[in-house]
């Protein structure tokens, strides 16, 4: 996994709340067995159907920071939603609230999801709508978002922050404790089902 320390880039204002993962990437794009190339599915229905959709505007085509409304990533657990955002070029998503599974998936995969107060999101929307070249910095080391006229701290637990800063793979970390797993398996309830 790629390390995340500090990222500065242009931002894309997505003024919708409740953006579900079926919108982020429709199911028809989930049939692939690869882990890359999902950028064509990102917001596919909106990109195809609405010329005014923000990603169809040339001034936002180089954005790497997505600024979304509340409850971003609801619905289906498809991690393809994270891959589609990353494959398209996004490094981080800012929103007042994220759906649990999407948040978990994003932080596993190195897409930094940052919870900011609604007022800060509104401020950033106005800022980048007024000046699409305005840059936003997401600083994981300092746990801070910075833009012209705004410095806003954000919360992220120490463990996840450390994992992202180091770019560490969760599985490798867990396998350091394989003895504890083996020990646990010895005292599982005798009636628990097995599949074979």
């Amino acid at each position: 996994m790629e390390k995340f320390t500090v990222h500065t880039g242009r931002a894309v204002p997505l003024r919708y709340s409740n953006v579900d993962t079926d919108q982020i990437i429709p199911a028809v794009y989930l049939k692939r067995v690869s882990r890359s190339g999902f950028e064509d599915g990102l917001f596919a229905a909106w990109r195809a159907g609405d010329p005014d959709f923000v990603l169809n505007k040339p001034e936002y085509k180089d954005g790497t920071v997505l600024i979304a409304g509340s409850d971003f990533g609801t619905g289906s657990s498809r991690e393809h939603a994270v891959w589609a955002l990353q494959n398209y070029g996004f490094k981080t998503v800012l929103a007042p609230r994220f759906a649990d599974i999407f948040r978990g998936n994003s932080l596993k995969g190195g897409l930094l999801t940052v919870v900011l107060p609604q007022e800060s999101i509104e401020y950033l929307w106005n800022l980048v709508e007024g000046d699409p070249t305005a840059e936003v910095t997401v600083d994981l080391e300092a746990r801070e978002v910075r833009a012209q006229g705004l410095t806003e701290p954000f919360e992220l637990d120490d463990y996840t922050r450390w994992r992202l800063l180091e770019g560490l793979d969760d599985i490798g970390l867990t396998l350091r404790h394989v003895d504890a797993i083996t020990e646990f398996e010895k005292q599982r309830k005798p009636w628990l089902p097995v599949t074979q």
Binding site: S77, V82, I101, N105, D170, I171, T174
Partner: peptide, 9 residues
């Protein structure tokens, strides 16, 4: 429900 990274985990 879990994502694919967790499925692998």
């Amino acid at each position: 429900g879990i994502g694919t990274s967790q499925v692998e985990h």
